[in-house]
Amino acid sequence: MAAGGFFRRSHGVGEAGWGRTIFAAVISFIYFFPVLWIILTAFKTMNDVLAVPPKFLFTPTLENFVGVFSRPFSAGADSQATNFDLYFFNSIFIAGSSVFFALVIGTLAAFGFSRYPLKGNDTYLFIILTTRMLPAIVVIIPIILMFRVVGLAGSYTGIIALYTAFNLPFTIWMMKSFFDELSPDVEDAARLDGSSDTRVFLKICLPQVVAGLAATAVFGLILTWNEYLFALLLSGVETRTVPVAMAQTIGGDIGVRWGLLAAIETLFLIPVILVVFFLQNHLLRGVTFGTIKR
């Protein structure tokens, strides 16, 4: 969100005037600076990275980006392919799938909680939320044990199922609040117009909460994309995600290769930035939904 102003389409100086615009630009720059520094570092040679005082002007190099996918693993050795193409695929596939499944299941559940409340509806919703109240470290050991027994450890199915379960509580809560905001009269009108309950959901309710779906998807994506602990302990060699692989890149006999890490991080930013960019119009409506009386 901090970089929100950066990705908004340019509208020129609006009614706020130059003074406030510049003030906002300075604040945005302060927030954005760490990201900017990582991106700059990704284009620096090892010497430029370690230079004191830090260099703002330097000759950019792409060697770090090449190194992400292929590099010598010890001094003097030949370049070898890393598995980062796989890890990037894993991150995208696992985060994408789990967000998708959480959205499908969560939206249906949220619609149910919103429109067909059970006796003790709030209790069920609370119970769903409690699954996210414990620190991850507390639940990880039983989960590892269960995954071992069932044979899910290290598999795509396992990690996707786990992340789906993680995303479900807030997906349900968020989507329920979006559904709660809709006018029930509109749905009754559709019933009078001949729609079945399923058609009311698909043709009337769902299109009205597109902004909510986008906002929920982005929150879920960011959460899952950056998850480290469970990925570290539950993913296998073939299903390793970028955060885990990144951590394992830090070590090595030639010290921490900051330029390489920065290059991985820069690449790692791109998918999320793209998603946010394409959903930004929905997103702005999504996060303000319900705060403005329509």
Partner: peptide
Amino acid sequence: GVSMVFQSFALYPHL
């Protein structure tokens, strides 16, 4: 064969 105009009009806002 009954139709209704709601007090809130209940138009489909996305259409």
